[in-house]
Amino acid sequence: MPEPKGWKELPIGGIIDSPGSARDLETGAWRARRPIVDKDKCTSCLQCWMFCPDMAVVVQADKMRGFDLYHCKGCGICAKICPADAIAMVAEAEAGTEGEGG
C-alpha cells in the first residue's frame, strides 16, 4: 500500500484516475479463514480460479499454484466449488504460515 495522499494531492470528487488501484488495497487483511490447497488432490481444473471474486487464485503454466493471500478475503467459494474437495478453509489463528508464498 503506497503512502496515502493528502487532500491537496488527491483528484477532486472522489475520482480514481489510475485504473487497477484495487491491486494496492490489502483486502486480505480482514480474512478470517484461509484457503489451503492439498496439491495431491488438486487436478488444476481451475474452477476455483474462475469463481474467485478477487482474482486471488494463482495460476502459472495452466497449473493451480495456491492463493494470493494479500487479496484473498477468505470467502470460501473456491473450497465450495472445488470438485476434488482439495481446498480446506482453516481459521487464520490456526493456519500459521501454511499456504503462504502462493
Partner: peptide, 21 residues
C-alpha cells in the same frame, strides 16, 4: 481515452480528505 472511476467507496482512509477539498 482516460479511464476513470466515479463514486468509489471511501472509508476512514480518504473520506476526510475529500470533504476537506
Amino acid at each position: 481515452s482516460r479511464p476513470l472511476t466515479f463514486g468509489a467507496l471511501d472509508f476512514y482512509d480518504y473520506y476526510f480528505e475529500h470533504k476537506r477539498q
